[in-house]
Design a protein around this nucleic acid. Sequence first.
DNA 1: CCAATGGTTCAACGTTTGTTGTACCTTTGA
DNA 2: TCAAAGGTACAACAAACGTTGAACCATTGG
Lengths: 120, 120
Amino acid sequence: MRDAFHADPADVPLAAAMHALSDPLRLRIVELLARDGETECSVIYSALGISKSNASHHFRILRESGLIWRNHQGRQQSARLRGDEFNTRFPGLLDAVLSNIEPGPAAHRPVQQQGVDRIG
Amino acid sequence: MRDAFHADPADVPLAAAMHALSDPLRLRIVELLARDGETECSVIYSALGISKSNASHHFRILRESGLIWRNHQGRQQSARLRGDEFNTRFPGLLDAVLSNIEPGPAAHRPVQQQGVDRIG
DNA sequence: CCAATGGTTCAACGTTTGTTGTACCTTTGA
DNA sequence: TCAAAGGTACAACAAACGTTGAACCATTGG
């Protein structure tokens, strides 16, 4: 599998970052990653009940806005929020968004706390 | 002129607010209003070099996301940021966005400071 | 080698978006 | 009363978006 393109958050315009965070599905992905940390992609799209190709599409947008990083071990892939880097580029933005996401249905793991600092 | 629809910020979903703030032109409008306070619409669209109908379109999106308020005195209209109300609905979001807008060309008035508290 | 698994890529689609121009409405000023 | 000014509403269009399904690629396990 070829290495996917990951944008450097430093190169991302604010409007592009806002757009990446303006879709309900992508907000849920970001919320999930913020809560659970690095997560397998299959877990995410089965938790959200969307097709693989649709998930792949949204993952790409999130990668291209510098919001997530994906690495693959074998045929499995996992995603994580690039909290620190995104926060360096847009101070306070991700925290503001995360703390304003209306909580989705039934967390799979106990909710601990919100915020970016925890994510690395 | 009929009264224009203004959304109650309390009714605006996060994704809609993010979308309203994901367009470069709308970001410049918000930036301008945050810097200069209440401003006549004609000033805004001539400052941005866009057509009246296009400006009207973007103003409507900003109204419908609870971001701006428009009032008309005579045949002139002016817009202002609904900073406090938007901030109540989405704490920290507008501040985070404003402090991350890359400064536009040549401010018409001296830049004082950024932030929402000042806007009322 | 073969089949199954986890994701990507592509074409296709319907919808939404941003932009322009024109017609229109309302208020002011002569 | 009439014309001009400030904005809105509408139709039109190209571009982008979200979604789906099918084909494809890479990796693992038998």
